[in-house]
Design a protein around this nucleic acid. Structure first.
Length: 140
DNA sequence: GCCAACGTTGGC
DNA sequence: GCCAACGTTGGC
């Protein structure tokens, strides 16, 4: 792990917490993650890292961009002390959502963690994947 | 609503 | 420590 820019993807059910709600709130504590792999990724986040915000459920798609505003701290809702939370703030919505089916259809995105392990709620994104997603979403 | 993937739990 | 059973997530 060097000091290069890092990119991540976080997943949320829009019925539970949507990108629009993140925008309305101006930021959010990203807590409640109870998976060790996802927690490891949360611990890797640094302030300023950029985040793809993905809606799971019906019409799964990357819908917006966010930024890490606070690094990992103990999840207040976790009595075990094993899990952590971060804080993120909205940057902007994608001009158009990039759907999971589009991602799957592209050979250069087929290795994305979201494709390979659909249940992982926090995952790293490579710089190449990041640029490709932003291109598809007409951002940048 | 169904099913696959995968994490967790608990009996042994 | 192994593994079967079970629960949850998420795509379709």
């Amino acid at each position: 792990m060097g000091s290069e820019a890092r990119y991540w993807l976080v997943k949320s059910e829009p019925d539970t917490y949507s990108f629009d709600e993140l925008v309305a709130d101006g930021g959010a504590v990203w807590d409640g993650v109870r998976n060790n792999t996802a927690a490891l990724n949360l611990r890797g986040m640094r302030v300023g890292d950029e985040v793809l915000f993905y809606h799971s459920g019906s019409g799964p798609a990357v819908v917006g961009l966010a930024r890490v505003t606070r690094e990992a701290f103990p999840d207040p809702g976790d009595a075990s002390g094993r899990f952590v939370a971060v804080e993120i703030a909205p940057v902007k919505p994608l001009a158009r959502p990039v759907t999971l089916s589009e991602i799957k259809a592209r050979p250069d995105l087929a290795e994305m963690k979201i494709v390979r392990q659909s249940r992982l709620s926090v995952s790293p994104v490579t710089p190449t994947e990041w640029k490709t997603i932003l291109g598809l979403g007409s951002v940048g």
